[in-house]
Simulated scan of single mutants.
Amino acid sequence: MEHFNAAPEEDLAQALLSCLHSHRWTGRVADHRPYPDLDSLLAAADEAAYDLGWSDLTEALAAEPLPALPPDTYAAAHTALSAAHAAYEARFGHVFVICLDGVSPSETLDRLLEAIRSRLTNDPEEERTVVADELRRLAKERLVGALRDAGNCALDHSGPAPAR
């Protein structure tokens, strides 16, 4: 936490944007430093995410990669997932996001397809609520990962955190 609290603003902003690409969220999390511990940081990150409006979430969604499949996934699965993503984007106008924290690689494909198919039945307002929750979960997961990966380097990342 010392490194996070002492990181230069520009470096911290870059690292936070890799967790959730929302300038409003990044500013809120950075502005409340110093944090006494990880739980306090995660609570602040969660609170800042709850305060985001749809335009902030749209900004974050624009930078989100599609959820990745394990490298050994067969071609037909990629085709099925691409078709599901296309149907989702046609219905809601943005990429599908899901936090797969704790899902084993062998379950990733089934979980993704099940979630997309299920969420395609949501009305747009209901889906916005689900999307906001998934983005909050992704941000917290990525923030924990960034802190873990940083070790003794104050959140020095050269690229965005991986989607899960």
Score class of each variant (00 low, 15 high):
residue 1 M to Y: 08
residue 2 E to L: 11
residue 3 H to C: 04
residue 3 H to Y: 03
residue 3 H to A: 10
residue 3 H to F: 02
residue 4 F to L: 15
residue 5 N to R: 09
residue 5 N to Y: 07
residue 6 A to P: 02
residue 7 A to N: 03
residue 8 P to S: 07
residue 8 P to D: 15
residue 8 P to M: 05
residue 10 E to Y: 04
residue 10 E to I: 11
residue 12 L to V: 04
residue 15 A to F: 13
residue 15 A to V: 06
residue 16 L to R: 00
residue 18 S to N: 10
residue 19 C to D: 04
residue 21 H to L: 05
residue 22 S to F: 09
residue 23 H to S: 09
residue 25 W to G: 07
residue 28 R to F: 02
residue 28 R to D: 12
residue 29 V to S: 10
residue 31 D to K: 10
residue 32 H to A: 15
residue 32 H to K: 15
residue 33 R to E: 08
residue 34 P to H: 14
residue 36 P to G: 10
residue 38 L to S: 03
residue 39 D to K: 11
residue 39 D to I: 02
residue 41 L to H: 09
residue 41 L to G: 07
residue 42 L to E: 14
residue 43 A to H: 06
residue 43 A to G: 05
residue 44 A to R: 12
residue 44 A to M: 07
residue 46 D to W: 14
residue 46 D to R: 14
residue 48 A to K: 09
residue 49 A to R: 12
residue 50 Y to E: 14
residue 51 D to Y: 06
residue 52 L to R: 11
residue 52 L to S: 04
residue 54 W to V: 13
residue 55 S to D: 15
residue 58 T to E: 13
residue 59 E to P: 08
residue 59 E to S: 06
residue 60 A to N: 06
residue 61 L to H: 01
residue 62 A to R: 13
residue 62 A to G: 05
residue 63 A to D: 13
residue 64 E to P: 02
residue 64 E to W: 02
residue 64 E to T: 06
residue 68 A to M: 10
residue 70 P to Q: 09
residue 70 P to H: 03
residue 70 P to F: 12
residue 73 T to K: 04
residue 74 Y to W: 00
residue 75 A to V: 10
residue 77 A to D: 14
residue 78 H to V: 00
residue 83 A to S: 08
residue 84 A to Q: 04
residue 84 A to E: 11
residue 86 A to H: 13
residue 86 A to Q: 14
residue 86 A to R: 14
residue 87 A to C: 01
residue 90 A to H: 12
residue 91 R to E: 09
residue 93 G to Q: 00
residue 93 G to C: 01
residue 95 V to H: 11
residue 96 F to T: 00
residue 96 F to M: 00
residue 96 F to R: 00
residue 96 F to Q: 02
residue 96 F to G: 00
residue 97 V to G: 01
residue 98 I to H: 02
residue 100 L to M: 10
residue 101 D to S: 14
residue 102 G to L: 00
residue 102 G to S: 05
residue 107 E to Y: 08
residue 108 T to L: 01
residue 108 T to A: 01
residue 108 T to M: 03
residue 111 R to I: 04
residue 113 L to W: 03
residue 114 E to S: 12
residue 115 A to R: 14
residue 115 A to D: 06
residue 117 R to M: 02
residue 119 R to Q: 15
residue 120 L to Y: 06
residue 122 N to F: 03
residue 123 D to W: 05
residue 123 D to S: 04
residue 126 E to S: 14
residue 130 V to C: 00
residue 131 V to D: 05
residue 132 A to I: 03
residue 133 D to T: 14
residue 133 D to L: 14
residue 135 L to A: 06
residue 136 R to I: 08
residue 137 R to W: 01
residue 137 R to L: 11
residue 138 L to I: 12
residue 138 L to H: 03
residue 139 A to N: 08
residue 141 E to H: 11
residue 142 R to W: 09
residue 142 R to A: 09
residue 143 L to R: 11
residue 145 G to Q: 14
residue 146 A to I: 10
residue 148 R to E: 13
residue 149 D to V: 03
residue 150 A to N: 09
residue 151 G to N: 09
residue 151 G to T: 02
residue 158 S to C: 06
residue 158 S to L: 11
residue 161 A to S: 13
residue 161 A to R: 15
residue 161 A to K: 14
residue 162 P to Y: 12
residue 163 A to D: 05
residue 163 A to N: 08
residue 164 R to H: 12
